[in-house]
Structure formats: structure tokens, C-alpha cells
């Protein structure tokens, strides 16, 4: 028996919006730790890892580990039927082939439930080792989103370089080229407005902007994004989900052929 009650239902709505364009079908794993997901996009260039810890739910009952395969577009459609202030409860029976999403409005005078068929998906769970990154940059998520959007009007790929000067985003296209540098800036009114650069070693990597733009769909989940870069590893863009966990996007670089 699985029963997860999330008071801030809007979080789940936002999580689905952040993932549904990148990943079509995915297995949600439910255990005592929490509600999680790991999935790659169809071309295996990007990977998303989600964790909503059990402590973040008002009620969390998961008698045994359950894997539930779902089409994210369909889940997103169902969650669009929930109001932003609704409480969302996810229910499933052990060994069952359906999941139920229940929505309660704040006045508790409207209760909806939607039952959805689960899918049997081949899960290809990848082991992601802990790594020391050459550079870790925390910046306002809205700023990162703006940069990715602006640069994609000029080019298809971006070179992200971190030096002592700051983090530089460069692109080139038919009309010319563009560089945006964000310097470390900690003299801000609110900590979430800061740009903080931790650099062990200078790093420069090339990425497809299309994927980075897709990751920025998570912007509404967190005011800051943490970008981790290492020359031998995929980029990680992490959006923390307040009091609950995170959504992390991994993106494999483009390398010299």
C-alpha cells in the first residue's frame, strides 16, 4: 500500500512541468527514503534525477518499495486538473496496475480523483558516482534561464567556461557571436540573488542549448540553480526543492570529434 499526501500540491505540478518535455515515460520509485525518479531523454544525452524526501510529505506510507511506470505527459495532464493550492494524494496498491491521484481544495469542499493505468517500463538505472567538480557555480535560476534563452536566439551550442573572472557563456551563429560573463557577486540584498563561484580548476565545456533551455523549465521550483562542471563529466544543473529534495539535470558535453 502506498499513500503519499503532499500539502503543497503545486510542487508536484511544477516538477512534472519541469520534466515532461525532456522525458516521455519514466519509472517513479517509492521507498522509505522518498519518491524518486531517474530517467534519460530519448537520445540519452540528458538525464533527470528527482528526489522528494518522505519527510516533506504530510503523510507518507510506503509498505514496500514500488516502481510505477508512467507517461509524464499523461501525469502532467492529470495534475493540470489540480488547483495550485490543492493538496495532492498519490495512492497505489501493492502489485496493482493503477495509480490514483486525489486532489482536495483548501476549503475541503471539492475532492477529485483520477485513476491512471501504470506502464511496464524497462528501467535502466544508472549509477551516478559522487564526484569532485572542477567548478561549482550558484546563481539566480531566472538569470540562468534568461542567458540560455537569449543565447539560443543566436546559436545552437554554448561554451560554458569558469575562470577566476567568473562564468562565461559563449555562442556563435550565422549572425555573429555572443559572450555573457557573470562575475561572482555576493554583495546582494538577498542570498538567493548572489552568484557564487567555487573553482578548483578552470574548466570549459560545450553543450547543446536546446537541453539547457529544457532544464530551465524547473526555474519556478527554486530561486537558485547550482551548475557543476568537470572536464570529464556531464554538467549538472541542480534545482533544490525547498524542504523536500531536488531535481537534478545532467547533460553530456559535445566534444571535438
Amino acid at each position: 500500500m502506498l499513500e503519499l499526501r503532499l500539502v503543497q500540491g503545486s510542487l508536484l505540478k511544477k516538477v512534472l512541468e519541469a520534466m515532461k518535455d525532456l522525458v516521455t515515460d519514466a519509472n517513479f520509485d517509492c521507498s522509505a527514503t522518498g519518491f524518486s525518479l531517474q530517467a534519460m531523454d530519448s537520445s540519452h544525452v540528458a538525464l533527470v534525477a528527482l528526489l522528494l524526501r518522505s519527510e516533506g510529505f504530510e503523510h507518507y506510507r510506503c509498505d514496500r518499495n514500488i516502481t510505477m511506470g508512467m507517461n509524464l505527459n499523461n501525469v502532467s495532464k492529470l495534475l493540470k486538473c489540480a488547483g495550485n493550492d490543492d493538496i495532492i494524494t498519490i495512492k497505489a496498491d501493492d502489485g496493482g496496475d493503477t495509480v490514483t491521484f486525489m486532489f482536495e481544495n483548501p476549503k475541503q469542499d471539492k475532492i477529485s480523483d483520477f485513476e491512471m493505468k501504470l506502464m511496464d517500463l524497462d528501467s535502466e538505472h544508472l549509477g551516478i558516482p559522487d564526484a569532485e567538480y572542477h567548478a561549482i557555480v550558484r546563481m539566480p535560476s531566472l538569470e540562468f534561464s534568461r542567458i540560455c534563452k537569449d543565447l539560443s536566439s543566436i546559436g545552437d551550442t554554448v561554451v560554458i567556461s569558469v575562470t577566476k573572472e567568473g562564468i562565461k557563456f559563449s555562442t556563435r551563429g550565422d549572425i555573429g557571436n555572443a559572450n555573457i560573463v557573470c562575475r561572482q557577486n555576493t554583495t546582494v540584498d538577498k542570498p538567493e540573488e548572489a552568484t557564487v563561484i567555487q573553482m578548483n580548476e578552470a574548466v570549459s565545456l560545450t553543450f547543446a542549448l536546446r537541453y539547457l533551455n529544457s532544464f530551465t523549465k524547473a526555474t519556478s521550483l527554486s530561486e537558485t540553480v547550482t551548475i557543476s562542471l568537470s572536464s570529464e563529466l556531464p554538467l549538472v544543473a541542480e534545482y533544490k526543492i525547498a524542504d523536500m529534495g531536488y531535481i537534478k539535470f545532467y547533460l553530456a558535453p559535445k566534444i571535438e570529434d
Binding site: V45, H125, L126, P234, A252, D257
Partner: peptide, 14 residues
């Protein structure tokens, strides 16, 4: 020309 790498060349199943 740059080649797009895949996630699976960095992380392996397990």
C-alpha cells in the same frame, strides 16, 4: 565539428 556525447558513456547501469 563537435560530437554529442551520451550520458551512458559517463555513467553505467547499476
Amino acid at each position: 565539428v563537435r560530437k554529442q556525447c551520451q550520458i551512458t558513456s559517463f555513467f553505467s547501469p547499476g
